[in-house]
Each structure stands twice: as C-alpha cells, then as structure tokens.
Design a protein around this nucleic acid. Structure first.
Lengths: 136, 136
DNA sequence: TTGGGTGCAAATGGTTTGCAGGTGT
DNA sequence: ACACCTGCAAACCATTTGCACCCAA
C-alpha cells in the first residue's frame, strides 16, 4: 500500500475502493489533474465510481493537507498530490502545461516590512508564466 | 473624462453609459471587486444595467489589458483595475481582505536556470497569505 | 453492528450566450 | 445608417448537496 493510504488510515480515514483509486490516480510528479480528469481515470479502474465521490474525496484530501488545490486558471480547479513538499508552478501560456519547480529561497523574503500592512504572513504562492519548449 | 476612458475610446471602444459606469466603479487603489459587486455598485448609478453587460464589459477590459483578473480564491473572480502598474497581492486568510503590494525585485529572478525546463518566461504572479491586523 | 461512504439526481453559483431591440459614431 | 451594444432569460459548467442504500472496521 502507498505511504499516502497508510498515513490516511492512521488518521482514521476509512479506506474504500473509490478512495484508493483516487489516491492511485493522483500518484506521481507533475500531476495537476482537474476533478473531471481524476474521475475519467478512476473510471478505468472502477467503472461505477461517481463524480460526487471524486469531488468529496478530493475535498477531504485537501482538508487533510495531502493534496493542494490550484485555482490558477479561470476554469476548473486542479489537484496537486505533492502538498507535502513545498514547491511552485511553472505554467505554459500556450498549452497549459504545468511543471513543479522548487523555490531557491523563502518567497516571503521578497516582501519588505514596509509593504506588509501589519499582516502576520503565513506563506506565499508563486506562479511563473511562459512558453514551454513545444510552444515557444 | 478619465484617462482610462480616453485610452479606450482611442482604441475604438464605443463608450456607452453602462461601460462608463463600470469603469467608474473600478476606479481606485486596492479595489478587487467580484463581477457581482461591480454590478451592485453600478446599479446605484444606472439602475437598468444588467449583469450580462457587466460581465461582457469586464471581459473586454481584461482582453484589452486594462483590468487584471484574480482567480485566486475558489469562488468568484475578482477584478483589479491597476493592471498597468505591476504589483502583487497580500490576502488575509481570515476575512479575505486583499491589499496591493509592490515587488522589491523581479520575481523571475527567484527561478534559477536549472528549474526553467526550457521555458521562455514572461512573468510571475505572487500571492502572499497571512492574517491582517483585524484578524490577527 | 453501525457510522460513515457512495451513487444518483437535483440544486447551486458563477458566468456565458442567443436573440430582439436600442444607440453611439 | 449600421455595426455594435444592451437586457432578458435560458443555457452552461464546475461543484455541492439531500437522501436512501451499502459496507469497512
């Protein structure tokens, strides 16, 4: 069984066939699927899985901090399974391809005290935009 | 007339009462309204303006590069009239307040060559998260 | 056994669109 | 005058929810 499922089971998550399939579909690097894409792939392994269950499961994984939600583009949200490792995204403005990239330093350092308006900062999200090798 | 309307008219934009009101509502600093909020404020000045026209107008302003779209939160998009001046956003995770902040350097410098995957970079968006003075 | 999970279908919320009539240039 | 804009209402799409049934622990 995957580390993910082991961790979730330890936290009292009831493991069903549907949830296992969703977790399997999300496994990998540079995976940023929409809920519908997750459902489409899940159906190949478990034909009777419903969209509602995929949405419910994705929502729980986000709450549990195991999956990150990318509301980046104007359309459907995308789900990123690498929530445990901090990273940023590089998005192709031509074809929509998304790659994970690793920060060189703490992005919070980019915001000087004089620009913090009294906020207590907890994090920062960075999206780099450009053309990928195929589109450039 | 505002600089915005003058610029748009010069680009062949037909100026109607509805469009003028939408442009007026969007005027200011730290303005990040949803389409519905824009409509609500526009109605105060022009009671018969429809939601569809507000959406159409906002969409055109985005295409023309005069207004930036923030798909940041999971819900409705927000519209930022300061598209002409590069800036980033500071979002309160408590109440949703959004402030404009100015970058200290080029955010692109944060992505080393070895992490660019052959992309030709064109820009970066940064969202800082934290608690505002009222929520902290 | 039983509380939580699931599928279905309907509801929701944001946004877009088709169309008949109106208006800025 | 004419191309473009507007309001209305219906369509659309992603997501959520109510509910009766089902099953992992």
């Amino acid at each position: 069984m995957s580390d993910l499922l082991r961790r979730l089971r330890a936290r009292g998550w009831r493991v069903t066939a549907q949830r296992r399939v969703v977790a399997e579909v999300l496994d990998g690097e540079h995976v940023h699927l929409t809920a519908d894409e997750v459902h489409a792939r899940a159906v190949l392994r478990l034909p009777e899985i419903s969209r509602a269950t995929v949405y419910n499961t994705l929502g729980e994984l986000v709450l549990l901090g195991e999956v990150a939600e990318l509301s980046a583009d104007g359309r459907a949200k995308r789900y990123d399974p690498n929530a445990h490792r901090p990273h940023q995204h590089l998005v192709c403005t031509g074809c929509g391809l998304i790659r994970d990239v690793r920060p060189t330093g703490d992005p919070l350092d980019g915001l000087p005290a004089g620009q913090r308006f009294g906020f207590t900062l907890s994090g920062a999200e960075v999206v780099y935009r450009g053309l990928c090798p195929s589109c450039g």
